[in-house]
């Protein structure tokens, strides 16, 4: 007798004081002070609750978290290779579908969440992530974006911004800007070619209630969902570890990061600034951009301006032109 598979319906959180007290990502890890990815992990785990299985591709949230005998996960967690988070998550979801259907497991389908870094999401992990989205597994893929291969010593990834000084893109007389390429756009990659996907959103550690509600919405839809979460990295971006939230907010205020949801083909924007600050305000706080010249900053500004006007990221209010260069 086949048993129908039910998924849970997590209520949305109205205010920060309504956030559950229970922690499922607990102390005991070894991340750096001010770590954005660790903070977002804590919020994601809180939002998802106890009926959750995490898949952790290799990356900071594996290497700095999952030490034998003191992992911080109070829910089931499994390491995956950096290459295959989406595939392993697909397998866990498929197993639960059949095991519940056959009556071998009781209860609702657990939240299957793949927590991958930017490399594990849209670089070496792109194929597995895309296939999970294509096949329609009822699972959530989160790209926690610290904009570099950080645990290996800050190397460039496809989401590392233009002009970043990383250990693979050091600035020098021949290549003065360091990184010459502009980044991939993970949520647009997912939205652009995966008809099974129900829900895609971007989030930031600067807005925890918004982040947690996006996690819950993503888990409540039946089918694949993708979250792109901005998670500043004090070590990689070279800023003081007390400024993680300030940097994350500035990214949104300058248009370097946008908060939006995509559901049923519709975009909705959150915490959109009335007027964008120049990207310089964001760049100047971070050592990774310290070497940039005025021309490089102008190039970055032009990229952001174009992105804010680009199709697929409609802006409901008029964008004020960036302030003139000083």
């Amino acid at each position: 007798m086949a048993v129908a598979v039910k998924t849970q319906n997590l209520p949305l959180i109205k205010k920060i004081r309504n956030i559950p007290k229970e922690e499922y990502y607990v102390p005991g890890h070894r991340t750096c002070a001010g770590c954005g990815p660790a903070l977002q992990y804590k919020l994601v785990a809180k939002a998802a609750g106890p009926n959750t299985v995490f898949l952790g591709p290799t990356g900071c949230m594996y290497v700095a978290n999952a030490s034998y005998l003191c992992t911080p996960y109070a829910v089931p967690w499994m390491h995956t290779q950096i290459t295959n988070g989406g595939a392993v998550a697909s397998g866990v979801e498929a197993a639960y579908q059949v095991l519940i259907r056959k009556g071998k497991r009781e209860g609702e389908l657990p939240n299957v969440i793949c927590m991958a870094g930017d490399g594990g999401s849209v670089d070496i992990g792109l194929q597995a992530m895309s296939a999970m989205m294509y096949r329609g597994h009822d699972a959530l893929f989160i790209c926690y974006d610290n904009e570099a291969y950080a645990n290996t010593g800050i190397q460039t990834s496809p989401t590392t911004p233009y002009g970043s000084n990383t250990t693979f893109t050091p600035p020098g007389p021949v290549i003065p800007e360091g990184k010459k390429l502009f980044p991939k756009d993970p949520p647009q990659l997912v939205i652009g070619g995966h008809p099974a996907v129900k829900y895609v959103a971007t989030a930031s550690v600067a807005f925890p209630v918004d982040l947690m509600n996006k996690v819950r919405k993503a888990l409540n839809v039946q089918g694949p969902a993708f979250l792109h979460i901005h998670a500043p990295c004090p070590k990689g971006w070279k800023f003081n570890e007390s400024k993680t939230i300030e940097i994350a907010k500035l990214a949104i205020q300058t248009g370097m990061w946008n908060l939006y949801e995509w559901e049923n083909g519709e975009y909705k924007y959150q915490h959109k600034p009335k007027e964008y600050k120049p990207v310089r305000e964001y760049l100047k706080l971070q050592g990774r951009f310290a070497h940039l010249s005025e021309a490089h900053i102008a190039k970055q500004q032009a990229f952001v301006d174009a992105k804010l006007k680009a199709p697929g990221i409609p802006v409901a209010i008029p964008i004020s032109p960036p302030r003139a260069e000083a």
Binding site: V53, L55, M78, T80, Q81, T83, N84, A87, V88, A89, S90, G91, V92, A94, A95, Y96, V98, L99, K104, R105, Q127, A128, S130, A131, Y134
Partner: peptide, 19 residues
């Protein structure tokens, strides 16, 4: 699967979940 690497990865996850 989207390739053999994925084939093995999918069944690894499913095996770990108890299938």
């Amino acid at each position: 699967g989207e390739g053999e690497h994925a084939q093995l990865s999918v069944v690894a996850g499913a095996s770990a979940a108890g299938a």
